[in-house]
Design a protein around this nucleic acid. Sequence first.
DNA 1: TATTGTTATACTCTATAACTATA
DNA 2: TATAGTTATAGAGTATAACAATA
Lengths: 147, 147
Amino acid sequence: MTRPAAPLSATELAQVASDLRLACMRISRRVRFEHVSEIAPHQFSVLVRLEAGPHTPGELAEIERVAKPTMTKTVGPLVERGWVQRTADPADGRQVILSLTREGRATVEATRRRRDAWMRTRIGRLAPADQRLLAEAERVLARVAAE
Amino acid sequence: MTRPAAPLSATELAQVASDLRLACMRISRRVRFEHVSEIAPHQFSVLVRLEAGPHTPGELAEIERVAKPTMTKTVGPLVERGWVQRTADPADGRQVILSLTREGRATVEATRRRRDAWMRTRIGRLAPADQRLLAEAERVLARVAAE
DNA sequence: TATTGTTATACTCTATAACTATA
DNA sequence: TATAGTTATAGAGTATAACAATA
């Protein structure tokens, strides 16, 4: 369908990498700062982890690359606000199982919707061809991000 | 050269926006965390601002959206490490002019090179067609970021 | 009196070390 | 004795309020 493409030259590669990195970092910053969030980034990150399923504080600390006492302090306010609940592990009395409450799930979804809306508004303003270009590029960029 | 493109449907638009936002945020996070930096993000940000030219602490505080006392504390260690220098404003005795030293400039450039290299390595591994796709998309993404 | 920058003080997020309960 | 989680304590980074020097 399309003719075979030549790889970018070293110069082109350097330029694209630099510009693309900068664009990603700027977008990321804008999304995070756009609305003065009701929830701190590290707290939101924990809610997102719990969305996928329950975890112990120790697991969360490892996933988030944070010390265990830090996770204790991070989770505290989330429990107080009714977004996370602690339950005892029936099999091992030392462990605690953290899970998202219904309110916690709603908070994650609301925050995600706000962030997506920011991006959707801006892409929506682009010319159709540019929209399709980004749709194509997204698949590649997702692979880069996942690497 | 190409046939006219139709705009994305609302569903496609929502999907692309969400996925693209996530990819940008992940890449941004990876770039920032990849090397345990010798300099904290907010300090690096100040160095980058000063790269463009001298500023007063008050200007920097406004640009970085931070309180003035915070900027005083941020700049302190940068001066101690020899990356930033303070000079008195000859026209207004209340003001201080902050500028980058040669060492400060070198630090900014080195950090930027490391970050670019991370991205360059990953784009370099892609198929030529994907490289060219990202090169095209970068221009659009930069517009979105600048908006 | 208004403005620039700093110092004083407090709160949050992070860490390491010490402690408690359980295995 | 080892492990999961918490509490105790300390170091950054942030803020607001109070202060000193200058306009």
